[in-house]
Nucleic acid binder design. Sequence first.
DNA 1: GGCCTGATGTCAGTTACTGTCGTCAGGCTA
DNA 2: TAGCCTGACGACAGTAACTGACATCAGGCC
Lengths: 176, 176
Amino acid sequence: MKAAIELYGERGYEQTTVVEIAKRAGLTERTFFRHFADKREVLFAGMTSLEELLVAAVANAPDGAAPIDAAIAGVEAAGAAIQEGGDLPRLRARIIATSVELQERELVKLSLLASSTARELRRRGVPDPAASLTAEAAIAVFRVAFDRWVNDADEHDLPHLIRASLDELRAVTAGH
Amino acid sequence: MKAAIELYGERGYEQTTVVEIAKRAGLTERTFFRHFADKREVLFAGMTSLEELLVAAVANAPDGAAPIDAAIAGVEAAGAAIQEGGDLPRLRARIIATSVELQERELVKLSLLASSTARELRRRGVPDPAASLTAEAAIAVFRVAFDRWVNDADEHDLPHLIRASLDELRAVTAGH
DNA sequence: GGCCTGATGTCAGTTACTGTCGTCAGGCTA
DNA sequence: TAGCCTGACGACAGTAACTGACATCAGGCC
């Protein structure tokens, strides 16, 4: 993972081959593919633990909480964890921004987070169109907040940005 | 395109090679890649015209319309156009559902629609966090509505489903 | 000391994609 | 009518991402 991120940063994602990554790590190409399903996945290895965090936070939201608040609690937990990662999440985001192929992968991962969130909401008794919609909304809020967090060097508090973005969403969707 | 969709439907996306598609169309592999950037893109060729439709609808929304209503007008226009496609959109959706690779591509295309929508909203004077959020919300609404449209054989009116999903979103995000 | 297991190397193969060059038909112009 | 130009296509060689099969080898366990 370290070798891959270094090389993606140095020469760019598309310009680095899997053989080069393996060589820098002191391994062979074949071994790389035993650890990562493909050349992209090496950047998304941490996603599963993030998903577990999110799901747990949704599940642990107070019983009385509105669905959207439970979902947002989930993405806030994920956001807090990301924030602990130091420079790495920002570096990762910058690399992803350079390649559509990587953006594709990021989008499916986020979509997976949305599915997990929706499933957890259903478990909490939220009926179906509402559960999906709430989950999608929460992930959209997360994405916008994360974008701002990555690009604003000043802004350090990702969970705070998430709450602010939720407020924006509420303002924006408020009926006439 | 016809050859590709047929083959993807018959043996599955991953099981069909570009050579086979080209052969069925009476062409060579090389010519396939002159028309489509890659094996996935053949399923998303109609996306650009859909995007133009959406952008135009957002631009033509009445001046007084709330941002969310302008954005929803855009996805409604797209939805109406999709509905005109007969069986093809549903077939396409069923094929995409069988392959993560294709879902990745679909997600970037939707993300592109969200970007275009946000850009158009900014042109209408909507400031920045609100514009992105509104666009993302509109696309989320579209996605949920489209999913229901694809899976409910009874449901024929996609724009109606979109409006219903927007109402759901409003209910779900309404503050306490 | 023998055996099993898990991680790795090696090698051959498939397929998506790209660059380059040659061909050829149709339309346009002198 | 002859020459020319252009755009679409075929042919061919090459790269790189993946995959399957088999061999090796170190460490732990009986």
